[in-house]
Amino acid sequence: MTNTQPCLVVEDLRSGYERDVAVIKDVSMQAARGSVTGLIGANGAGKSSFLKSVLGYLKPQSGKVSFEGEEITGFRPDVSCSLGIAYLMEGHSVFPSLSVEENLLLGMWPWRHDRNRVRAALERAYDRAPVLMERRQTTSGLLSGGQQRILELERLYMTDPSLILLDEPSLGLAPKLAAETFERVESFSKEGIAVVLIDQNVRRVLEISDYAYVFQLGEVILEGTGTSLSKDVGNIVKEFI
């Protein structure tokens, strides 16, 4: 791993949708600031459930989740997110009847009473994505799929997070937009943020990942640097995905 200081440390995490049935089976992983950590695996391998367990959408049955040195195991998602973890869930997560600006303002919910900080974050988001500025009063459900994804990514970034968890950010996007999305993901890590990335585009995930974990049936069955796994990507796809 190229990074030194782990931002997220998960130890032997076990969780599931029913009390006695584990979907995630004793998974351990780390993600450090300034790096991209890839999670790959077939559909149903448990990658999304793993992220949900880290964030508290799924209550862990055992194991430990630490963020910036503090244990956050079983914290509610809103509490985890308020601590500085940003999460892009699978599928679209914009609030469709709210305007673009209202969506962005909700991204600053934990700091909503600090008007100066909210205004500054809003201006930064508009500087990075002028299309959002142009359409700031538009109902976000009327944006194209690509524009909605830009809105979601900028909304994630509003709170200045230390850790960003991305679940299928390129899903359903045209190739050009998907490429731009991956560029944005890389830019997050270059700014010192720890990024955990799940995506169907395994090759691209391994290309930009500093380290990656391969999931199968809720377990990590292989791990290594993105570069080393990339060399064997053909076999990984054939065997595990």
Partner: peptide, 11 residues
């Protein structure tokens, strides 16, 4: 509209 996404905002 989206309770899970609302939680992800810290709500």
């Amino acid at each position: 509209e989206h309770p899970d996404a609302a939680m992800a905002m810290g709500i």
